[in-house]
Amino acid sequence: MKIAVCIKRVPDSETRVKIAADGKTIDEAGVKFVMNPYDEFALEEALRRKEKAGSGEVVVVCLGPAAAQETIRTALSWGADRGVLLQADSIPADPFQTATVIAAELKGTAWDLVLFGRMAIDDYSHQVGPLVAELLGLPCVTAVSHLDIEGTKGVAEREIEGGIEVVNFSLPAVLTTDKSLNEPRLPALKGIMAAKKKPLEVKPVQAGTGTLEIVALMPPPERKEGKIVGEGAGAVGELVRLLREEAKVL
């Protein structure tokens, strides 16, 4: 199994977002960066597939700034074999440009699987995986929560509103992973030591500007001050009255 796992360096989910002076990006001071949580399921799945196959290679690909080397090292500590940083000062605002850069890197290698998290928790675009699949001409299943592979035939499950879609696909394929797919491992000290010696190639890239232009990053509208209606079951009558008469949602 030759598997590429495409990961992204993102602010941790507990981050309080402060807007930078340019009014278009976040202020990164004091922000803790991590591997995008959905990418952890992709990486875990790749490692398990390789372990099950008994041979193969798991390559981690990341588009990001120099500091994303740290994110790649984390992936290597989990057990990935090598990493490639597509180094750019910033990640394009246009996911098609991101996909173009990643697809150019992946092209020409006979991957069995190319895995992505189903979305990144910073830009919420949930599309780089399927865009790359289209650019490479590979079949794609998104938001995979269960996966069976037998030879070049795959069966994936993906959550839809009110149910689960069971999808047949053929390998090689691009898959994007959802939370229930597996339980990501915790890195062991041995892995962290080993990761330092694993190959990490840095390739400067130049992404195009694309057709999505950031005009402004703004704080969400403040919710107006709420009120404590009361304490205990005795307050329910008043709550229901307010929901009917003031909020008009009942």
């Binding site: 602010p11 977002v17 830009d123």
Partner: peptide
């Protein structure tokens, strides 16, 4: 950022 900010 899950609604912690809005992007125009």
């Amino acid at each position: 950022y899950a609604g912690k900010a809005l992007l125009k």
